[in-house]
Nucleic acid binder design. Structure first.
Lengths: 220, 220
DNA sequence: TAGATTGTTAATCGATTAACAATC
DNA sequence: TAGATTGTTAATCGATTAACAATC
């Protein structure tokens, strides 16, 4: 029987990623098991929610003892596809781009940068964190010779769609977008946006909301 | 009548931030109005959703003509609190931290970095993008002399809670957390997490999901 | 056995979408 | 006026939480 995998809701995936990080810490402290209730407390979630989340990864706990930390970590890692490695390329070696290249994604998060690309010749033909930076024009050639699963877009919004088009044309299935641009891609390509500004907007709005407004200052 | 402001759902705020960026582009191209329907198409949302979102900011459109772009931009900016400026400090001047300091938040997003702090003396007493970097120990003194609305946490997860505690102690109301750590803070402090790994998890999971599994490979 | 903890089923809550009336 | 577009009310959908049974 051929079966696709269950589409997990984004909030669940985010929480699972949080558990994963927490569990790594517990494992390092030689702790072997934990109950969903205790885990829930640590992250201030509802315990039933934690159990439901874990269930989705195929984990089963034992009444009275809870879950084995090693098993949990493995299950979550498998669920995310982090046991294998995703080959990745990055476009736009600016401040953010270089910071991303320098982060150790490979250790725990299944992401391996094999190259980066930039349209500015001054930034090309160097190594950043041992990752070669080439000119954007070289990408098609490079792509034909390497297995690339993920393209990271760290260019300005104005050129982001162009980069996305190139990625799609070369058959890259996953796009991690750090630009403001709303990328239009065919259905078979997955775009995930990591846009700081949206996160900042939530923070500043919450601050605005928490300010008690003086009489008349709030419009209708 | 004293009234707090409506607590907007996070998804709405994220979408509004998307509109805001799009509208800035339209304005630059001298376009003066747009219908919610057209806007919806550009970002591939439901038009009713767009209208509901805009309503929350107090915007009213005109049947047959739509919304004025200038008005929309202003309304969204006011809604986010971006007309005023939020004074901000950053902790952890590493790769990510410096990238954040170099981004022009001030222009459009109401965020003004007034200083950064690091526990590594080698990184202190320099300027990054004209923003002074001090030693963490100096923060309490600094805080007493400046109005700080937001603290940005860009330190490793292992020291993030410590930084959060310092921020809370100095009465900072908004914390923008880029570390993996789950920060525990009193209710009067708002924490917004901008955790890349969670975003990456969604992308990799979607890729895992889209792979059709061969017989027997998918467990139960 | 008793009690803690899991797992399941049902209820609630909130966000999105659909249907339609109002208006320029 | 007719038609496009807004705004509102109701229906649907999905995610979270509550209640409780199952199990070690």
């Amino acid at each position: 029987m051929i079966s696709g995998k269950v589409k997990a809701p984004a909030p669940v995936i985010r929480r699972l990623s949080t558990y994963h990080h927490l569990l790594m810490g517990l494992r390092q402290r030689q702790i072997q098991r934990i109950s969903s209730t205790a885990l829930a407390e640590m992250v201030e979630y509802n315990p039933v929610q934690v159990r439901k989340d874990l269930q989705l990864t195929g984990l089963v706990g034992k009444p009275k003892t809870g879950f084995l930390i090693d098993e949990m970590e493995d299950a979550i890692r498998r669920f995310m596809g982090w046991e294998a490695e995703f080959g990745a390329v990055l476009f736009g070696v600016g401040n953010l781009g270089s910071a991303l290249l320098r982060y150790p994604w490979r250790e725990e998060h299944g992401l391996r940068f094999i190259a980066a690309f930039d349209s500015d010749p001054a930034r090309c033909n160097i190594l950043v964190n041992n990752i070669p930076v080439y000119h954007t024009d070289y990408f098609a050639t490079f792509s034909a010779e390497h297995e690339i699963h993920i393209g990271v877009v760290a260019v300005p919004a104005s050129t982001a769609q162009k980069v996305a088009d190139i990625l799609v044309k070369e058959g890259i299935k996953g796009i991690w977008n750090f630009s403001h641009a709303h990328l239009k891609t065919p259905a078979h390509a997955t775009v995930e946006n990591a846009i700081f500004t949206q996160s900042l907007a939530i923070l500043t709005r919450r601050l605005v909301e928490s300010q008690v407004t003086s009489p008349g200052k709030e419009h209708s």
